[in-house]
Design a protein around this nucleic acid. Structure first.
Length: 452
RNA sequence: GUAGUUGUAGCUCAGUUGGUUAGAGCGCUGGAUUGUGAUUCCAGAGGUCGCCGGUUCGAACCCGGUCUUCUACCCCA
């Protein structure tokens, strides 16, 4: 059969894995520096854990795992007869692939609450799966790097997480814009416009402002049955770009005043520390509405510093007052962020921001010219390895031409050639593949040369 | 889920109105060169033309379906 992999998934070549590891390593170091501890959860969750947590769209994008055994025998007969796929799912699938790392984390916190001390700060770097149509920066299997803290309502964490965005992207050499909003502001907007019940519709529409302009937003609002009077009020909100200007607009809304106060506090904390990337308040920002209740974060590439990069958000996050409630644990507020590793990879590659150095790169390849010298080569390669030098031995005596070509393809900077003369004297020919020069060195000289 | 797009050698791609044996560059293998690569020269191998079906005397080419790629929408990392 012809080999293939599922839609939206990828294989990675060694060079790509090194680069991915560079991103994961950078994020992991930052997470640990800020006191987050690693956890892991299974790729599969019980489907009931996942369904209903990501909205209607999210449910459609969940990968369901077919039950083993004679699953049709136990299927819901009525749903089967009616060809009702949605009704059938519960009876033929009890598991699903995780859709993000936050919901499994909530489940984890509830299950392990006695083993954790709160506030509990955890990070996780694991793949998630979504049955979405693949596109640029969009895959069906992709990694997220999450840091969350649960068990404290303190807004210092909002600021801390903003700082985490800042240090990670600095480390990666990427200039970003960190956008900040608060879901309470969005609630106030809906309330002041007289349509608290249509907050979702309103936020989805205004989120598109940059893309479709104010007229486009109004058309969206029309489509969602928001009257013109309300649209005028919404337009006023959209014209605001500082918190102070915002104050009169939400003066009559309790939740609005609350949201504004929270944002101010967060910005005060942010100002008290050094953040090098731009952090902006953005009333349009409406992502992640499914369980967020307070702060909303989103990070995008700074187009002033990196013009022409077309990639949506590369990291995001927010606060959820009560994510664990649905799993039976009350009063457990949390706030967290997520780095989209795949998108960050694509951007770093496009901008050529990956470092050249590669810690896994082979330093030396030993090649032997005849069978009699293989033993010497095998001994030498292990001596080099004991000295901490990444090295390998060409497994058979072959034509030097062929072996050098192989070294070239593996991008090895040094080739150690062992012929009968070298084996006898213990002085090896060392060819520098970059410069093309060749010198003779004994074991000690070789080790000190290659370690530098 | 809606609309469009892509698929030909390992890779990047040509391929005429449907017509003999489907090509190129790069890569690969061997040789020129039995101890010197990435630059030279010569030779060679390598293809169910994504898959299934249809139209036709004849299909890489036309039609239908399907999978995949990329893109817009929806939504999102």
């Amino acid at each position: 059969m012809k080999p293939s992999i599922p839609k939206g998934t990828r294989d990675f070549l060694p060079a790509q894995v090194y680069r991915r590891e560079y991103i994961f390593g950078t994020v992991r170091r930052a997470f640990q520096l800020y006191g987050y501890q690693p956890i892991e959860t299974p790729a599969m969750e019980n489907l009931a854990t996942l369904t209903g947590k990501y909205g209607e769209e999210g449910d459609k994008l969940l990968f369901k795992v077919l039950n083993n055994g004679d699953y049709l025998a136990k299927a819901d007969q009525k749903a089967l007869d009616e060809r009702d796929s949605n009704g059938l799912v519960a009876s033929i699938s009890k598991r699903g692939l995780r859709y993000d790392l936050t919901v499994p984390f909530a489940r984890y916190v509830v299950m392990h609450q006695n083993d954790l001390s709160f506030p509990f700060k955890r990070y996780a770097i694991q793949p998630v799966w979504r049955a979405d149509r693949p596109q640029k920066g969009r895959y069906q299997e992709f990694y997220q790097c999450d840091a969350d803290v649960v068990g404290s309502p303190s807004l210092v964490y909002e600021a801390e997480l903003v700082r985490l965005f800042d240090v990670v992207f600095n480390e990666l050499g990427l200039k970003v814009v960190i956008r900040l909003n608060n879901r309470k502001i969005l609630a106030a907007l809906a309330e002041v416009a007289g349509h608290s019940d249509k907050m979702m519709d309103i936020t989805i529409a205004i989120d598109k402002l940059d893309k479709i302009g104010i007229e486009g937003v109004r058309r969206e609002l029309d489509k969602r049955d928001i009257p013109a009077a309300a649209q005028d009020i919404i337009e006023k909100f959209l014209a605001v770009d500082s918190l102070d200007e915002f104050e009169p607009l939400v003066a009559d809304s309790e939740i609005g005043r609350e949201g504004l106060a929270e944002l101010r506090e967060v910005f005060d904390f942010i100002e008290a520390m050094s953040v090098t990337n731009r952090v902006t308040f953005d009333v349009k920002l409406a992502r992640g509405l499914n369980y967020y209740t307070g702060a909303i974060f989103e990070v995008e590439v700074d187009l002033d510093a990196h013009p022409g990069v077309k990639m949506g958000s590369i990291a995001s996050g927010g606060r959820y007052a009560d994510l664990t409630g649905i799993f039976g644990m009350k009063d457990m507020p949390g706030v967290g962020i997520s780095f989209g590793a795949e998108r960050i990879y694509d951007v770093l590659e496009e901008l050529e921001l990956f470092p050249d150095s590669n810690p896994a790169q082979l330093t030396a390849l030993i090649v032997c010219l005849d069978d009699e010298t293989m033993a010497t080569g095998f001994k030498l390669v292990n001596q080099l390895r004991e000295a901490g030098i990444n090295s390998d031995l060409y497994p058979t005596a072959a034509k030097l031409n062929k072996m050098l070509k192989y070294a070239n393809q593996r991008d090895v900077p040094h080739v150690i050639i062992i012929g009968s003369e070298e084996a006898k004297s213990g002085v090896y020919s060392v060819k520098n593949m970059r410069a093309g020069e060749q010198v003779k060195l004994d074991l000690a000289g070789l080790i000190s040369q290659l370690q530098s």
